[in-house]
């Protein structure tokens, strides 16, 4: 019928105002700036002239930089998979078997969040160092004879990323699993599904919203990660984040850095849309 009640009121505007302002100034505006810069031309000694110069985007497709882009997406993807593989069982256990300990366990998952990333990363440097616990344990168990290089490797970078992003996967998964109706599981068993099939055909498909949310929360930031490759990778693993950082801070090529940033944003947007579309229309669980 009519559009009654859908109009703007002063109250509504007042409520939305601050948020809109904040988003507009601190989110939208910088994005637009970067977009504008990406078409500019960088001076040799830094500085930027605005204009319409698409050559920065051509540079983005240079094989060297393309390789870095691919590597970044692959690592972000593997990171997401690992977080899912490790996080799902943990979230499942806490949500469905946690009982009295649920809250305590959740807090344990979140506690690392409260410490600075730098401190946690340096802790890993110590743990994985030549004389660190990891190496000493391996030697103690007789698996290795001498210290092996664990830190400042691509594996250390991946491990560091999984470590810092795991809570982002666990919490949304927990939220979804917590609401799971266990009588559905019983029904599945009753109809002849063993433990694996009941999980795979009933519990898991119904936890998909949590899986999607967690995956997005992990994938997007890890594609832009640059701190961990430096701290834990000895700057030997160059990801898109590092490349962009270098353009702005070292190479003084802001235009190219902006073009890379825009490309990253577009890629991530595309990946997410593809992912959500695919999961959304597929017959979840089906057969």
């Amino acid at each position: 019928m009519g559009e009654k009640g859908k109009g703007w009121s002063l109250g509504l505007a007042a409520l939305l105002g601050p948020a809109a302002f904040w988003l507009g100034v601190f989110f939208l505006l910088p994005l637009l700036l970067i977009l504008a810069y990406s078409f500019g031309t960088s001076g040799i000694y830094g500085g930027l002239t605005l204009g319409f110069n698409p050559s920065n985007y051509l540079k983005v497709f240079d094989p060297l930089y393309l390789e870095i882009t691919v590597r970044t997406l692959v690592i972000a993807f593997i990171n997401t998979l690992l977080c899912l593989a490790l996080g799902y069982p943990l979230a499942y256990f806490i949500a469905l078997r946690g009982g009295r300990w649920k809250t305590a366990l959740l807090i344990l998952v979140m506690v690392p969040f409260w410490t600075s990333l730098l401190i946690r990363a340096y802790a890993w440097v110590v743990i994985l160092g030549g004389n660190g616990i990891a190496n000493r344990t391996l030697q103690f168990l007789g698996i290795t004879d001498g210290p092996i290089s664990l830190i400042f490797t691509p594996q250390a970078v991946l491990m560091g990323m999984v470590y810092s992003y795991l809570p982002f996967m666990i919490l949304p998964l927990y939220a979804t699993l917590e609401r799971f109706d266990t009588s559905l599981k019983e029904a599945a068993h009753d109809l002849g599904a063993g433990r694996w099939h009941a999980f795979w055909r009933v519990t898991f498909p119904l936890s998909m919203p949590g899986v999607i949310a967690g995956s997005i929360l992990v994938f997007i930031p890890s594609a832009g990660e640059f701190v961990i490759p430096n701290l834990l990778g000895g700057s030997q693993t160059v990801l898109l984040g590092n490349l962009i950082q270098q353009q702005f801070l070292n190479a003084r090529d802001w235009a190219f850095g902006s073009a890379l940033a825009v490309m990253l944003a577009v890629l991530l947007l595309g990946a997410i849309m593809f992912y959500v579309r695919r999961i959304g229309t597929e017959k979840l669980g089906g057969v």
Binding site: L64, E67, I68, R71, S235, N250, A251, D253
Partner: peptide, 17 residues
């Protein structure tokens, strides 16, 4: 090194990656 600065940067990126 003037213009060559970009070349240096690119080389270093290539080495590191």
């Amino acid at each position: 090194v003037g213009e060559a600065t970009r070349d240096y940067e690119r080389i270093f990126t290539e080495v590191k990656s």
